[in-house]
Design a protein around this nucleic acid. Structure first.
Lengths: 252, 252
DNA sequence: CGGCGGCTTGAAGGACGTCAAGATTAGTGG
DNA sequence: CCACTAATCTTGACGTCCTTCAAGCCGCCG
């Protein structure tokens, strides 16, 4: 497919430009808070920058790591979407989550010291790779880094708890869309128009629904004028209403 | 009620004895790995010991912290059981988890900087209170402490993901019982006989089931000879079979 | 073209929730 | 020690939401 597809609403990503210098380190990255000018001192920035290794591209379907591989690194998504999932012994997949640009992957591997899941690229993915031992050592010198690691880990506990709910298919789907929108917005992307980089089946699995139910709910939402769906492109027409439907899950 | 109740299978806990000296710091505690003799150096042990504050007793129903209170401390359970839960604006409760002796409470509050849930004592509870800023500062000096914090946080991500599954009521109940047994066993308690310190309704809520379903599943398990239930006392008669039922959830 | 995977739509079936009533226990005060 | 009440737990009957099963549609690629 040509790179000029008309529905490509995310800014084009050029892995060779814009995020390589020491003072503007990945402006959308999860470590942005501690790194961006004004937020942190330059030596820390430089240390962190020395630690990181840019990897990619991965193509759709490529694995970044596999379950039970020894834990070595955590990753920040620079571009693309990463799916994390487990496979039980019957071969059934369990989608744990989707990781958008600026978000971390692999934090759940620290404890078992092995990756407890697979990480799969859903489209073309570029990552920053952090050796965790090195990062932890750096964190002992730089409290800002340590704090940020604690925050990232703590936040993931909350995220994981979100979908543990037994709410209805409507509520779960609404919450999923709103969360996606908020996460895109937090990284500077559009909060009302975005492309679902994952298949319906993956969404369904993640929300613990059948793929058919996802289809039906999306159609219902569209019939009610809440969203507009075209293939994998979604436009939120009535975010407030969606947020209202999802408010019990967004635990507010 | 007398303190010599015949069903009291957990060792009696004397908060004034056994865990106060600097070299045997809470042998069942989540920090045990870094503190127990041989595992860690004495200065660290002493520093950690200075940091901790023993609090309690809390009585059944007492709150340890409430949602939206500013985050200050994390807690380790010394005795009793703590329930963490949120309450949405319709007043419906969401049980996030139960915390047994040796386990940590409050790790999910680091990121939002406010407690995102209530913590309620289910019976008589004694805690160790750690000021988190002080602990984080200590962690910059003592990599072992930092590592342990990272591990605890990472482990909680995995735990939270467990119950996100949409498995059957049987599978969820079996997993709940096995997890409980394993957690008790890890702290030196019996893995086959224990007392449920939480109400059926709390179990149901946590597993995203109706209280009636919990009753029915427990009865079914008993009729099948898998367990023996008497009020809140449970005996696992066929742990292997239960583990088999739950194996898909225990993500093996 | 023809096959394949992802997506949608419809109809039937099942697992769990809801409602309602009864059983057992715990807590309280006489 | 014994009522009395409230809370928890159990059990049954019924309804519902979602899954499962099945078929058809669409875009993609060999």
């Amino acid at each position: 497919m040509s790179s000029t597809r008309p529905t490509g609403r995310l800014p084009a990503f050029d892995p060779e430009a814009g995020d390589g210098d020491e003072l503007n380190f990945c402006s959308t990255c999860a470590f942005g808070e501690v790194c961006l000018p004004g937020g942190f001192d330059k030596p820390a920035l430089k240390d962190l920058h020395c630690l990181v290794e840019h990897v990619g591209p991965y193509r759709a379907g490529d694995s970044i790591f596999r379950v039970s591989e020894p834990f070595e690194s955590i990753f920040a998504v620079r571009a693309g979407t990463v799916k994390t999932c487990t496979v039980d012994e019957e071969g059934r997949e369990q989608v744990l989550g989707f990781h958008l640009p600026g978000e971390m992957v692999g934090l759940n591997a620290i404890h078992p010291a092995r990756y407890p899941c697979d990480a799969i690229a859903l489209d073309t993915v570029y990552l920053c790779r952090f050796s965790f031992p090195a990062l932890a050592m750096l964190a002992t010198r730089l409290p800002g880094i340590q704090q940020q690691l604690f925050r990232l880990l703590s936040a993931d506990i909350g995220k994981a708890a979100l979908l543990a709910s037994d709410y209805s298919a409507n509520e779960r789907m609404a919450a999923f869309l709103i969360l996606l929108a908020d996460r895109y917005a937090a990284r500077g992307f559009s909060a009302t128009r975005f492309r679902l980089s994952m298949a319906r089946g993956d969404i369904a699995n993640h929300l613990r629904l059948a793929a058919e139910t996802v289809s039906r709910v999306l159609r219902r939402f569209q019939d009610q004028g809440l969203i507009k769906v075209e293939e994998r492109d979604v436009e939120l027409l009535d975010s407030p209403q969606l947020r209202k439907m999802a408010r019990c899950i967004l635990h507010g």
